[in-house]
């Protein structure tokens, strides 16, 4: 079974900071972490991709596109 599962792409693992059923902040903080990481280390810094993959795994696409628009318009409710 593990060999079959290894064919699956990567998904966001269990994170001990978010042990509960409510995963809203897991998604929300990963999104912020990615953009802060990029701002700090530049767009080519490979380790930032971890946060991107995490929030892509977790956040509904509708949320991500809304937040992207808000960041572009400068109305995103958190400092990156």
């Amino acid at each position: 079974m593990s060999s079959a599962e290894s064919q699956l792409p990567w998904t966001a693992p269990f994170d001990a900071r978010y042990p509960n059923m409510n995963q809203t902040k897991h998604c929300y903080k990963s999104y912020i972490d990615f953009h802060r990481c990029q701002k700090l280390r530049g767009e080519d810094y490979e380790p930032c991709q971890y946060f991107k993959k995490t929030y892509t795994s977790l956040c509904p696409n509708e949320w991500v596109s809304k937040w992207d628009t808000q960041r572009a318009e400068g109305t995103y409710p958190c400092k990156i």
């Binding site: 599962e5 699956l8 792409p9 990567w10 998904t11 966001a12 693992p13 269990f14 042990p19 059923m21 892509t56 795994s57 977790l58 509904p60 696409n61 509708e62």
Partner: peptide, 25 residues
């Protein structure tokens, strides 16, 4: 409630009146 390490994440979004699913992995 016991969380395990998932090998796949699926998102289910409820709409009026249908479900939509996202396999973002």
């Amino acid at each position: 409630d016991d969380p395990f390490t998932p090998s796949l994440t699926i998102k289910a979004v409820g709409h009026q009146w249908y479900w939509s699913y996202e396999y973002s992995d």
